[in-house]
Amino acid sequence: MTDSSPFPHRHLLGISGLQPHEIRYLLDEAEHWVTLNRAAGRKHDDRLAGLTQINAFFENSTRTLLSFEIAGKRLGADVINMHAAQSSVKKGETLIDTAVTLNAMRADVIVIRHQASGAVQLIADKVDCPVLNAGDGRHEHPTQALLDALTIRTRKGSVHGQIVTICGDILHSRVARSNMLCLTALGAQVRVVAPPTLMPPDVERYKVTPYNDFNAALRDADVVMMLRLQNERMDGAFIPSAREFHALYGLTPERLALAKPDALVMHPGPMNRGVEIVSAVADHPERSAITQQVEMGVAMRMACMDVLTRKARGIAGWA
């Protein structure tokens, strides 16, 4: 029997493999949660009551973990956080053993972040419940791309036709990969900006336009998305210094003036203020959407967990 539901996937492992209408469906579902989250007073919707959500984070994270935890709790799930630092992973347990263990505990939804590309898929293949990828290595971070798309859609009315400039460490960034896939699928014109040492080869295959020159890439941009530059890449291995990176790729008010007058500034956080972005831009009341991204993140994750657990909850049409 073919699954005729609007989102016929067991897991959310990446944007790759999703159809544009499936992405739009998830965004539409999230709108409802934005409204609920903004309501004063109680924010509970207990549709996941009695279900167990395990957040298995093998790589440190504060904001993404918090976002998934709040999302689960607002839906009424029993949320358990497993940090790699305090798990048997440190004692040499293999990832498969960990997956089998989580499965035996009858988790109903598992959220995973791992430092190795493909690790989340490896776990998903071994468990019976839906798995959400909260970031695997350099591969994908699908909920981040979805929340970014939701932010753009909310602020700009549509993702289609927007010129989105993504700047920073494209090579090592799962956020960039998922966003390139998601935004192009939704019809945006995506430009990616990085020095050659931080640009993946053949990046054009993502249907994006690569630039080394940030100023050129900013021209007429509707959205400017800055990526975090990891500290370990600033020491001369990939770029000479944070200072030089800032000189070439730091988003300043002067640079932002090259984009459209109403261009939106985004950053997945946490920011290196003074490196990839200066405070005057990051904190700009009209232009910066950075805190709104965080807000959309909770709604987006609520939508994803709701949709992925519908089959198990026996919702009509989701068999």
Binding site: S16, S117, G118, R138, R177, P201
Partner: peptide, 15 residues
């Protein structure tokens, strides 16, 4: 190997 597959999968690659 550096190329479309390694870029898509996010695998550390060499030319």
């Amino acid at each position: 190997t550096e190329g479309e597959t390694s870029a898509r999968l996010g695998l550390p690659a060499a030319p």
